[in-house]
């Protein structure tokens, strides 16, 4: 078996507890355990992560940059979703 063509895993790291997971990059590995170890060695040699996720790259579905306009269009005309749409003096909790 040709062994250099290991599957690709996307790596997400959490910088501190409670923080969101962010995409850090990817690694090649034959299985999820080694993917985690490789991810640790490549993306957290200086305690950059408190937790790491690895996800097979082909399990990720992405919107495409070409369709960006129409894909995100539904939110373009909904300015009433933002609080500054409302003119209500004195009603702020801040």
């Amino acid at each position: 078996m040709k062994n250099d063509n290991w599957p690709l895993w996307e790596v997400f790291t959490q910088k501190r507890f409670g923080a969101p997971f962010e995409h850090a990059g990817n690694v090649h590995a034959p299985d999820k355990e080694l993917a985690l170890m490789n991810a640790r060695d490549v993306y957290s040699r200086r305690n950059e992560a408190t937790c790491i996720w690895v996800v097979p790259s082909d399990a990720i579905t992405s919107s495409t940059p070409e369709d960006m306009g129409p894909f995100f269009e539904p939110s373009n005309d909904k300015i009433y979703r933002h609080p500054n749409f409302y003119k209500t003096p004195g009603a702020s909790f801040e």
Partner: peptide, 28 residues
Amino acid sequence: AKVQDEAGHGLYIYSGTETLGISREQML
């Protein structure tokens, strides 16, 4: 630790290069 960093740097850049449609195997 420094030499291990260099290996890591190689991996970051190989990863980045793969996004352009060349496999790591081919580069190696």
